[in-house]
């Protein structure tokens, strides 16, 4: 019963991807035609998609930016989440409110001033903005961590403190190891965001320093706005592979969760 449900769901979830894959194998003339199966699959589309979007240059850039952003955001957000979950200070309530409010702000509003900010700092065209964004953390992830830390019992931390460990050490040695599901979720989410985001690179980077996400949206155009959909489909499939790989690695930690550590 469970099997059947999962199997059908998976089939349904895979169908659009299958359609995307079939689209990736179409010849140009078939793109706007109603046939489902390409008459003769054009495997070369994947090669063209790879070269046209300059994967060999753009892929390392995307990996670097998404990796740096994911690592830094996860770290600084976990810190902030821990601070919010465990300590009270004047202003802690305000920080919590601001966190929630920050999530309600549509990103579009910040584009122009953000550019002006980085232009003033001389960081347009560099990768430093991703470092700074990462260090600043992300409100969603901070709240995610806070919720996880709140639900973890405090006994171990308290006994470690009694043993003479400092708070930073407790955080590092006792709390984080129990938080693998949250860490894994955060890593995958933040990596996928930076990986998929194209407004920021479009705003701040040049064609020869930009990310794969931007290259995908512009590289397959015959004419601007008139994209070769078969190549875009092929490129998109290639583009999803690194995030999928990360998920496959992370999913072990998602489920082999805190209780395993606690009872182990």
């Amino acid at each position: 019963m469970t099997h059947l449900l999962l199997f059908l769901s998976c089939a349904l979830f895979l169908a659009p991807l299958l359609f995307l894959a079939l689209g990736a194998l179409e010849s140009p003339a078939e793109q706007a035609s109603p046939n489902l199966l390409p008459e003769r699959p054009v495997w070369g589309n994947f090669v063209r998609a790879f070269t046209d979007a300059d994967f060999s240059e753009r892929l390392p850039t995307s990996l670097l930016l998404a990796g740096v952003y994911a690592a830094l955001t996860t770290a600084s957000s976990a810190c902030a989440g821990y601070g919010l979950a465990r300590f009270r200070a004047p202003g802690s309530r305000l920080v919590l409110v601001l966190l929630a409010l920050t999530m309600m702000i549509p990103g579009v509003i910040t584009l122009l001033p953000t550019y002006l900010l980085f232009a003033k700092l001389g960081l347009v065209g560099t990768y430093w903005p991703w470092v700074l964004w990462g260090l600043g953390g992300n409100s969603y992830i901070v709240l995610l961590f806070r919720q996880f830390f709140v639900s973890i019992p405090r006994e171990q931390e308290e006994s470690a403190l009694l043993d003479g460990c400092g708070h930073l050490r407790v955080f590092w040695r006792v709390v984080l190891p129990q938080s693998r599901p949250a860490l894994a979720a955060s890593a995958v989410l933040t990596f996928a965001w930076a990986w998929g985001d194209w407004t920021a690179p479009l705003l701040l980077l040049d064609a020869d320093t930009t990310t794969l996400a931007v290259a995908l949206t512009t590289a397959y155009a015959h004419e601007p706005g008139h994209t070769a959909d078969n190549l875009l489909a092929a490129g998109s499939l290639l583009y999803t592979l690194p995030v999928l790989a990360l998920f496959l690695v992370a999913q072990r930690y998602l489920t082999a969760g805190a209780y395993a550590v606690r009872t182990g």
Partner: peptide
């Protein structure tokens, strides 16, 4: 160097 046409980027650069 080349950058993609984008109204927001152009506006921001001019500003």
């Amino acid at each position: 160097t080349r950058i993609d046409p984008d109204l927001t980027r152009l506006t921001a650069m001019i500003t």
